[in-house]
Design a protein around this nucleic acid. Structure first.
Length: 103
DNA sequence: ATGCTGACAGGAG
DNA sequence: ACTCCTGCCAGCA
């Protein structure tokens, strides 16, 4: 199982209405320092992977921005549509929606 | 091969 | 609170 494959597998487990962070994913894969590679993996996410990359946010809940989906606003809209709430600063309410992969 | 960049994170100044 | 620096590793000029 290649690194990106594991990333996709985990992200796919995130239920609608929940989010997770790059660091968390990297940690679950055994190497917290590979957070950047997680980001790279998301950027390279093939459509066929069916990975809800919009549910993956930064360590503090801030959205990816830049190259993502066409804008942070889009990612935010997608999450809101799934029931995810945001803080005044535009960050995801991790306290309520962070997926800890307890399943 | 070398160096810079990047959907990141964490620590230091 | 904010900016800068380093670690990690894949991709590209």
């Amino acid at each position: 199982m290649s690194f990106p494959q594991q990333v996709y597998a985990l992200v796919r487990q995130v239920p609608s209405g929940c989010v997770t962070t790059y660091g968390t994913i990297a940690c679950l894969l055994g190497d917290p320092r590979k957070a950047r590679q997680v980001g790279w993996a998301m950027a390279a996410t093939p459509d066929g992977a069916r990975v809800p990359a919009h549910r993956v946010v930064r360590a503090n809940g801030a959205l990816a921005g830049r190259h993502a989906f066409g804008g942070e606003a889009i990612q935010r809209a997608l999450l809101e549509a799934e029931g995810v709430t945001f803080l005044d600063n535009g960050c995801v309410d991790l306290d309520s929606h962070l997926w800890l992969f307890e399943s």
